[in-house]
Write a protein that binds this DNA or RNA. Structure first.
Length: 719
DNA sequence: ATGGTCGGGTTTTTT
DNA sequence: ACCCGACCAT
């Protein structure tokens, strides 16, 4: 057995070997957070009388929980059986499954993902005659989820204005529909798991006694209901180890409460706090930049990262002429980096919003550099996958209206809107499921013979699929469902790359099902398990992850990752910090934390780029450098100057000719100039030559103007 | 039932 | 600029 403490620094060792009790570990970026968490668990198992059975480890993503289990078992050298490791949602699901009766749920309750939820809400909004122009369903969904995150049910809420009233009406109807259909959405998993423990003393006591240690990663991301659940579970005797970094809280907009980490010390008794401030990831310059930026936030718990390694290379700041130039610059630098013998996947390009990725992708394609985009649509969210799963859901439960509505006419089988309307209305009037309604509607001959026959053959189809359940493996069954439903033919008939991809995805789904068949521990219902996992897990990322490629992702998705070389693209006003974050006060601080996250992803080399001019959403804008850039000490920054050698694709002709015209006049595009009346600005474009030449200048305060060079009397600025 | 147009929106994302 | 959803015409 390895000596767990040998390879740790003093603070890490203190955190790992702390005496029993509540513990807060404030772990800066790159300070070995996961390592401490993993070692803490191993240490507890080796040095106290606790067994894996008494430990729970909670994370936010499935990926994180898989990694955590792997690393624990690696350190221990044996499988940690009996230990609960999972996401908040996964663990809540587990509790609800185990105690479905106490949770007042049907045994086979179905998890609704956001898409299912939205569809159901849309249906209800329609039924309730709510004007969805005035109250968009998306907003109602957002609101309901927000309420659940705060632990509030419809019955707890008072409506004082028309909007809340409308939302509340839908919330109530939605609760009822979920109850009747046996649906549980993501928020409901947490809310109900909380209520389960709160309202069942015997269960609470049981789990309190069992889980003497609860360890929570990314504690700064917990929302109200998650915190309440932990608080309840821990009681006065259990011990919670909260690991997190208030400076990396970037999910406030979806309900995460940074206050949770700030209040932890007060609300849990006898908390020992350890700060992990030694950084093992980045160079000195990068850390100086990160520290300087985050210092501008108030209400921090306070940490300052330091490193034993030297300053390394300065941070390069590139002021691009426009977004094309920015992308071009980045690809060039990546080419150089690769020529120096580095792998492509040691470089990452990070941006604030997904819309920025396009130009970057185009430039990478032009340069022939393979890249991979993280994020985007998840595997189990894809249309063809959701359709196939919907058939399987119907096999398990005919009363799953959400699944039924989804595929009753996919592929088209002559069951049009009108027919579905009749069934839906019948179901609503009689408070039964749509499947039951179909049977009734047929019996009472409420439909034309043609529509009736279509319904009958659909019902028959599902029943046939069901019969296959008994003697087929899950993979075979999935394959059958895809074939029998006609989904395969449907996509075979479509043309284009998209259809091809859909077919491949369906194959992939069958492959995913095979994993369950190979599993030694066969669950009671492999299909049920498969569907639950599909709802709770994103599925692995897209294919081709094995080729060495440059990594592209949003700043949010970059949290938790590290790369030798990082490019922060589009570090401009209005984009980052995003203009949407200006209204609310706390938002700017969150954007700054996002910036801190971005900077601290870099290990060796960091580039910060912004464009003087950017075409986004079809409009040209001149945002100017982000305020965050000015927060970085100039001593660690080195500006890159190569604008005159900019080559641009011929498609962007206007700027192209400008470059040459500007050179003839002895000015540079992108050059900062001072004007007597308008103040400071940047030369954006040049038109004409000699005495008539006009310059387009984007002034910091006056906006963009065309001036005749001869009269403008411009003074070049020192940058 | 399907395809085409028109208009609105457009930060971040997991479960 | 582009994507998606709603509505309308075939």
């Amino acid at each position: 057995m390895t000596d767990l403490l040998a390879s740790l620094n003093d603070e890490q060792r203190q955190a790992v070997s702390a005496t029993p009790g509540n513990q807060l570990i404030l772990a800066g970026a790159g300070s070995g957070k996961t390592r401490v968490l993993v070692h803490r668990i191993a240490w507890l198992l080796q040095n106290t009388d606790i067994t894996p059975y008494g430990i729970m480890a909670v994370t936010f993503t499935n990926k994180a929980s898989r990694e955590m289990r792997e690393r624990i078992e690696e350190v221990l050298g044996f499988p940690a059986r009996g230990m609960w490791v999972g996401t908040f949602h996964g663990l809540a699901h587990r509790l609800l499954k185990a105690h479905f009766k106490d949770a007042k749920l049907p045994e086979n309750f179905q998890i609704l993902d956001s898409d299912d939820q939205l569809r159901l809400l849309k249906k209800l909004v329609k039924q309730l005659n709510i004007d969805d122009e005035r109250f968009p369903t998306k907003e109602i969904q957002w609101w309901i989820n927000g309420q659940k995150d705060e632990g509030r049910r419809a019955a707890h809420i008072q409506a004082w204005d028309p909007q809340t009233e409308a939302q509340l009406t839908v919330y109530s109807a939605y609760e009822e529909a979920c109850l009747r259909g046996g649906f549980v959405d993501f928020g409901e998993l947490l809310l109900r798991a909380h209520e389960l423990l709160r309202d069942n003393q015997h269960l609470l006591e049981h789990y309190r006694e069992r889980f003497q240690y609860v360890l929570v990663d990314e504690f700064q991301d917990t929302n109200t209901i998650q915190y309440a659940w932990l608080r309840l579970l821990a009681g006065e005797t259990g011990a919670v180890t909260a690991v997190g970094d208030d400076d990396q809280s970037i999910y406030g907009w979806r309900g995460a409460k940074i206050e949770n980490i700030q209040q932890f010390e007060q609300e849990f008794s006898g908390v020992r706090t350890t700060r992990l401030e030694q950084n093992y990831r980045s160079t000195g310059s990068i850390l100086k930049a990160a520290n300087a930026v985050i210092e501008n936030n108030d209400d921090r718990l306070g940490k300052e990262l330091w490193t034993e390694s030297d300053d390394g290379e300065a941070i390069s700041l590139y002021s691009a002429f426009n977004e094309q130039d920015e992308a071009h610059f980045i690809t060039e630098r990546i080419e150089q980096w690769v020529e120096q013998g580095h792998r492509r996947d040691s470089s990452a390009i990070l941006y604030r919003s997904n819309a920025q990725s396009r130009v970057l992708e185009e430039a990478l394609i032009r340069a022939g550099i393979p890249y991979r985009i993280y994020g985007g649509q998840r595997f189990y969210d894809r249309l063809e996958i959701k359709n196939a799963l919907a058939y399987l859901r119907l096999v398990i439960s005919r009363n799953d209206d959400t699944a039924l509505e989804r595929v009753i006419n996919v592929p088209t089988r002559g069951i049009g809107n009108k027919t579905v309307d009749v069934v839906r209305e019948f179901a609503r009037d009689h408070g039964c499921s749509m499947w039951e309604a179909m049977q009734q509607v047929l019996q009472h001959k409420l439909l034309t013979a043609r529509a009736g026959n279509a319904l009958i053959s659909f019902m028959h189809l599902i029943d046939q699929m069901d019969q296959a359940t008994d003697d087929l493996s899950l993979a075979e069954m999935t394959e059958q469902a895809i074939e029998m439903s006609g989904l395969k033919d449907h996509h075979l008939k479509e043309k284009g790359e998209k259809a091809q991809a859909r077919l491949e995805n369906l194959d992939e789904l069958v492959t995913a099902a095979k994993v369950y068949d190979a599993d030694e521990e066969q669950p009671a219902s492999p299909l049920r398990q498969f569907l639950d996992d599909a709802a709770l897990d994103a599925g692995e990322q897209q294919a081709e992850e094995n080729i060495d490629s440059v990594q592209l992702m949003t700043l949010h998705s970059a949290k938790g990752l590290e790369f030798p070389q990082v490019f922060l693209a589009g570090v401009e006003k209005n984009i980052f910090p995003h203009k949407m974050s200006f209204d609310e006060p706390g938002r700017l601080a969150e954007e700054r934390r996002l910036c801190y996250v971005g900077i601290t992803r870099a290990m060796e080399k960091l580039y910060i780029c912004y464009a003087e001019s950017r075409r986004l959403h079809g409009k040209e804008s001149f945002n100017g450098p982000s305020a965050f850039i000015r927060e970085i000490p100039s001593s660690v920054i080195e500006e890159v100057r190569l604008r005159t050698q900019v080559t641009r694709p011929v498609s962007a002709v206007k700027g192209f000719s400008s470059v040459h015209a500007a050179a003839d006049l002895g000015v540079k595009l992108g050059q900062r100039v001072f004007h007597q009346k308008f103040g400071e600005g940047v030369i954006m474009a040049v038109e004409g030559a000699g005495g008539n030449a006009r310059l387009q200048i984007n002034f910091d305060y006056e906006g963009s103007k065309w001036l005749v060079m001869q009269y403008a009397n411009l003074r070049p600025m020192e940058e």
